[in-house]
Design a protein around this nucleic acid. Structure first.
Lengths: 302, 302
DNA sequence: AATGAGCGCTGCAAATTAGGAAGCACAAAG
DNA sequence: CTTTGTGCTTCCTAATTTGCAGCGCTCATT
């Protein structure tokens, strides 16, 4: 789209941090790019880049502008998708950022189901912790985010939110595996493997131990739940995960115990989008499908 | 702003209804304009105009696009205003659509007050009935609308809403002028002058008479409240207006009676903006001031 | 039925604009 | 103190856009 060329170049420069680098990325000469930037700043009425000895950086005006540029490009994309839609073609792309727990079972199933109906739609899936997911939405890199315990509710539109208990995960032959019920303090008596603080489940665990005498003393801190799952099979350790990330009835190597809400607070799984943004057809419909599926996972009222 | 040139031309064509006319308006030749449109349609991937024997008209895709164009231009304007703001200058423009009742006293006072602080800000004020005001918001011709009884609440963001009683207005020497209180049916016994159905106050009167035996039998239907005010001085007629449009204590030629809510429903005066739109600095601040002033006019709870 | 006005569209040459190559001044890094 | 990398400028050429004139078409009017 030609009339956006300059804006695209500005974004490239902002990312590259230097005009010459950006010029190379965009396959034009630095002189041409330089002039376009200067021309734009002139008609815009204010400089948008700070000139540093080692390159350039967006100034506050530029930050404002780049946000406008991204929102504008994304909105144009939405219009094009909507136009394609009304001429009968169901195409498009959905970019979604989500927590690790969503990756193994939930998201593949949902995407496969969606694509059964709309094979023209393509997907990008990004694993993101809650902060990174929010940043993705803000910069329009993702249309949707499905994350546990998002930090800044108010900056986004919450399409739907459900609760999930934290579950203790261990091998079937673990000493605790025979119990009827389990409390957090039981788990902490054994070696436990927990994710780093950036991840939702750790946040909840930290909250929980904050009001206990016992402390978190992780034998292992790992940012991969897949690692955790396999690790607990090899040691008498306890891991933690949400039900949505577990194949509860399908794998008899594990013992899984949901922890009560008074023990560890439930995790809030929220489906988010950029505030006020109108999503293109495909992301909007997919969000709708996700919302429906998530409602089915809602905890029965206590 | 050069990169928007094509979009601006598209808007001009949409408005003019013909490429040649628009070309004249924009001071270029029709051939150049024609080719730009064709070029845009090609890279956009779909035609946006229907070619008719007497000119062109936006097709559905074009309608979608023009909405994007307008929102985009307005957002860029917002960014520029914000940038100007952060370099210390307080400039900008506010475009507001409002009911007639707002014109004589309320709006002039508010604008004057705002401009005392920010003399760099300019204003456009448009008199609009409730439907036209909404259309103004939708097409980004106005930043704000202050109207009685807006029809489609849900399509807009309601910044604030207050209630005002309908008042009967007559000359001091009118036979009814000595009364303590007045009811609608008293007024209808005399010649009355009412606005056309498009105007909020008429809508309320129609609602009111709908549940009465008596009917509205206007001697005069006039779309100017100023006309109404002067007319009732020249005939033993009754007119209707909201308090905000009356100089209640300042003009002793008139007798004014608020009508009870059970008699004629109160009018809802709403300050609206386009849904989800982020207003530029000046309109946003002015909206804020309006909201504060309107709150002072709120009816004391009954 | 004929006519003329108004429309969108197209070929071609002229005018305008944007692009590339090379080089300058400057500042940080080695 | 040299080297490297930066933004910016100048000159010239390439690419794009514009204006002009004209074609074919539809519709309202004569």
């Amino acid at each position: 789209m030609k009339h956006l060329q300059t804006l695209l170049l500005i974004e490239a420069v902002a990312k590259a941090g230097s005009i010459r680098k950006a010029a190379e990325d965009m396959n034009i000469t630095s002189s041409a790019l330089n002039r376009r930037i200067q021309g734009f700043e002139e008609e815009f009425g204010a400089p948008i880049f700070e000139r540093l000895p080692r390159g350039v950086r967006l100034n506050p005006a530029g930050e404002l502008l780049i946000q406008h540029i991204r929102s504008q490009m994304s909105d144009l994309e939405r219009v094009r998708a909507q136009v394609a839609d009304l001429s009968g073609v169901r195409r498009g792309h959905v970019s979604i950022a989500c927590s690790q727990a969503i990756q193994p079972y939930f998201m593949p199933r949902e995407i496969a189901e969606y694509r059964r109906e709309h094979s023209g739609v393509s997907f990008s899936v990004h694993v993101r912790d809650r902060d990174a997911a929010e940043e993705d939405l803000r910069s329009y890199q993702s249309d949707l985010a499905l994350v546990f315990e998002p930090r800044h509710h108010a900056e986004f539109d919450v399409i739907l939110s459900i609760e999930q208990p934290v579950c203790a995960v261990m091998s079937r032959d673990h000493p605790l595996a025979g119990r009827e019920k389990l409390r957090l303090r039981d788990c902490l008596a054994y070696p436990h493997v927990v994710p780093p603080p950036a991840i939702g489940i750790r946040y909840l665990l930290d909250l929980a131990v904050g009001r206990m005498s016992q402390k978190l003393a992780p034998s292992i801190e790992a940012d991969s739940f897949e690692f955790m799952r396999h690790y607990v099979l090899n040691d008498q350790a306890v891991g933690f995960q949400f039900p949505i990330g577990l194949n509860i009835d399908g794998d008899d190597r594990f013992a899984i115990f949901p922890l009560g809400e008074r023990d560890v607070p439930y995790g809030k799984l929220s489906l988010l989008q950029m505030k006020g943004r109108i999503l293109p057809v495909a992301p909007a419909r997919f969000a709708n499908q996700l919302a429906l599926s998530l409602v089915d996972l809602r905890l029965p009222a206590v």
